[in-house]
Amino acid sequence: MSAAIRLEELTKKFGSLVAVDGLTVDIRPGGVVGLLGPNGAGKSTTIRMLLGLVRATSGTATILGESVDHPDRYMGHVGALVESPAFYPKLSGYDNMRSLAALDGQPDGRIDEVLEIVHLTSRRGDRVAEYSLGMKQRLGIAAALLRDPDILILDEPMNGLDPAGIVEIRGLLKELGDGGKTILVSSHLLAEVQAVADRVIIINRGRLVFEGDLASLLERAAHEVIVAPDKPEDLAALATTFEQAGFAPTVEGRTIRVADAVDDPARLNRLAFDNGITLAELRVHDEDLEAVFLRMTNREMGL
């Protein structure tokens, strides 16, 4: 099956700043893909290149087989929300949508449908200046849905939404993805897309850090045993005991972390007991996805 979106060595430089650095990614049709990375990672620039707003410095990208150098050939199948939602503040939400619908050749009836989807029907006549950030975000998503696109590209769509709104939008994205549409959702928080994304692309400083499904990402999670002696003064002795037994302990505050004892934590307990040290804590700790994401991106940033 050919890729819905394909990037090959895609690079964008703004002067001496390399915003996107040789990004190579394939996104299959259908489903929700999370584009993750900390602020400034290059997510928005990548999205802008996909939408034809910004030209790549080098490399290529295609959407539905068409080069991003010719956005007019594929944008009819793409809906998008780029960065913060932007509308004319003195016009009503409905008139803003009417303007976009006219530009896109959509009937006014479609406006009512998408406003209903994002639950803005009751506020459609209000000026956008009176909308909260969450309502503007919903309006932005409605605008992206106007043409009933095959590919939906949403840049930080959860920004400004309240928890109930986030759940709603997640449900909507899941439904659209399950319905065969290709959804690319960017975020700087893994938790925001974790519940809906089938696959994630993690970038940092414009470079690809990880691409795959969430299970593969979880395989990169660190597992370790956390041990704490009952008496804090035993901490150094306990660490030495573990070292002498061939482990690689790391003292952190009042605990010791032992990464290479996950398969046999009881051995640590026996070692402590044999040396007359009583343990107050002994547990296996599995890093969660968010921690993996943060570790991967922080490491890339050299933190």
Binding site: L51, G52, L53, P71, D72, M75, V78, G79, A80, V82, E83, S84, A86, F87, Y88, P89, L100, L103, D104, A143, A144, L146, R147
Partner: peptide
């Protein structure tokens, strides 16, 4: 100018890339 100031130029170019 206001389409650049408001950022609405992005919406317009998504709807009409020509």
């Amino acid at each position: 100018a206001r389409d650049f100031e408001f950022g609405t130029i992005r919406n317009l170019l998504v709807a009409e890339p020509r």
